[in-house]
């Protein structure tokens, strides 16, 4: 049997309750190629069933709802199935299974969760805010997983007085901090009037990014490993053109870092700065 649900927590828990006794269930939140003669069920969230299921699972593993939340945020198509197998194992063993890494279900779920939390960690660094005329900050992102609201506590902790919006343009939703409350809101397109200094600061950041690079040590593959190309789109430092310039510069002309500088004439020790 194929079990479809809408990807929400309650729908998952309802599905779990219904599909638990199915010997070969396929659980999916998106599209699934149906083969001839296969039965399928569309499960709608049932508040009652979901609460019952949640209470029972929490008895078995009091931290398992955090795992579920992260698994359902995954953008990978087989995440719901991985979550189902993981929770089935919890139910079968009647205890937390987190440490049983030799179990297929646990190994897969752990990896899946790790990819989600890793992206959260990455975006703590890769988010780029634009300053609007009102002083509020706006950052468009396009992450693999549904993590926009997970980033809010981090930024709220460091800029509590500045309202900000983290806009997941792929999913059409925004995580908002208005200075007092954090909430999620649907948002397709946003129009931002930039502050007067915004472009000047961006230009300085671009200048900094170019200056701090050491062209004679080109390692673009490593750069892309740490900062995948799909994240570059909203970065004002423009990593693509910097990588391009470095790659061309390294082969054609010797960069100033590789070429020894001729020593100049000695200067007076208290010379004034020569900008």
């Amino acid at each position: 049997m194929i079990w479809f649900f809408d990807g929400s927590k309650d729908a998952f828990l309802t599905t779990f309750l219904l599909a638990y006794r199915d010997e070969h269930p396929i659980v999916s939140a998106g599209s699934h190629q149906l083969s001839l003669g296969q039965e399928c069920v569309f499960v709608r969230a049932d508040e009652n069933k979901a609460r019952r299921c949640e209470a029972r699972l929490k008895e078995l593993d009091k931290n398992c709802m955090r795992d579920l939340d992260l698994l359902l945020r995954s953008g990978e198509s087989d995440a719901p199935r991985i979550a189902f197998e993981y929770f089935r194992l919890i139910a079968e063993r009647g205890r937390p299974v987190r440490g049983m890494l030799a179990e297929d279900a646990v190994a897969k779920a752990t990896e899946c969760i790790r990819r989600v939390t890793f992206e959260v960690h990455r975006f703590k660094g890769f988010v780029r805010f634009l300053e609007s005329a009102s002083g509020a900050l706006y950052a468009p992102i396009s992450p693999d997983h549904d993590i926009a609201d997970l980033l809010v506590p981090h930024f709220r902790g460091r800029i509590p007085d500045i309202p900000f919006v983290i806009h997941d343009v792929r999913r059409g939703k925004a995580a908002v901090w208005d200075g007092a409350h954090a909430f999620l809101a649907p948002l397709e397109e946003a129009e931002v009037v930039l502050s007067a200094d915004e472009t000047a600061w961006q230009a300085l950041w671009k200048q900094y990014y170019r200056s701090v690079n050491i062209p004679s040590r080109e390692r673009i593959r490593q750069m892309k490993g740490y900062m995948p190309v799909r994240y570059w789109k909203f970065m004002p430092e423009d990593p693509a053109s910097a990588a391009d310039r470095t790659a061309r510069g390294a082969s054609v002309q010797k960069s100033p870092d590789a070429a020894p500088r001729p020593p100049g004439s000695p200067r007076s020790p208290h010379g004034s700065p020569r900008p």
Partner: peptide, 27 residues
Amino acid sequence: NAGGIGNGMPDGCCHSFTPDGRCVSLL
């Protein structure tokens, strides 16, 4: 954060990577 801007992140955080493969964390 004690009013104002910023706090420390005990794990550290990389904000960008330059074409030499190094991270940009601090100015």
